[in-house]
Amino acid sequence: MEYLPNFKTHRPSTAAEAVKFFAESDEPRYLAGGTDLVVNVRRGIETPQTMIDLTGVEEMTGISDAGGGLRIGGATVLREIAESPIVRERYAAVAEAAGEVAGPTHRDYGTLGGNLFLDTRCLYYNQSEWWRASNDYCLKKAGEVCHVAPSGKRCFAAFSGDVAPALLVHEAEVELAGPGGTRRVPLQDIYRNDGLDHLATQPGELLVAVYLPASTAGIPSTYVKSRVRGSIDFPLAGVAVRLQRDGADVSDLVVALTAVNPYPHFVKGMDAHVGKPLDDEALDAIRDTVRTQAKPMQTTTVAPWYRRRVVGALARRLVSKLYEAQG
């Protein structure tokens, strides 16, 4: 028998009901698949008194056409996204990224919303209560010191979701339901570069759905992650690329990263390569630009300098691959 704190579980059937439960409950947390949250509860990192189980909210599941784009419910499981013919056809990187999350069983019940709202991760944080207490906790939770960068007052825990960068390159928007009503914002607006508090959403806000626009549908894209093992592992670094080629020139290039900073983000400066052919020099420049914008710290057992090297190498490889494939 595993030890878990006492909590009450609600199972609403609409998003509005879920938001209402959240507002009315003590220490509430939204629960979808639970692949991240339940682990953290078992480790005492999260101590909710109320769990709001979203798996019964019908409007939050499923993939549907939205004017040439797509609407994907926040509680849609990752396998459904990975195997969806329409997602694969229109937004290849999104399907690929969903298919790279953790292992197959996790993807059978882990959800899109869960992957986007994944807590940031660090060797000194994803440990048991006994472990963290023995180590005087850490800046991110209950402690004073960051064990990764003891002299600073910043938390460098890394955002480690796979799907976010793929959605970023396709300019996804998210529909959030909260106590103040429903709003739709670009995906990047829900994140900030702070491992301690990387979500810029309001308390009680719930990710109802993700919208992928028609404007980026069908543009070639791809996602790849670095990890030590072929499955289960979180990314050490992840890269999504969207690239359109027009003759010899690159007509559209967007790159986004995950797992190398506390938040998923676009790589700046890619516009410089648009309107030109892509040669080795340009590819090297892309690689180097990516490396300068990745700032991994010792949050995994694998050396941060490696994650920085590899994120650049993978970006170069993906850009080259998409460019060559359209030649």
Partner: peptide
């Protein structure tokens, strides 16, 4: 201690699932 080994895999409504991370 949670979702890392698969020993608890069961099938819920036709799909594999970790019984150790499921309420």
């Amino acid at each position: 201690d949670g979702g890392e080994c698969g020993a608890c895999t069961v099938i819920v409504d036709g799909k594999a699932r970790h019984a150790c991370l499921t309420l």
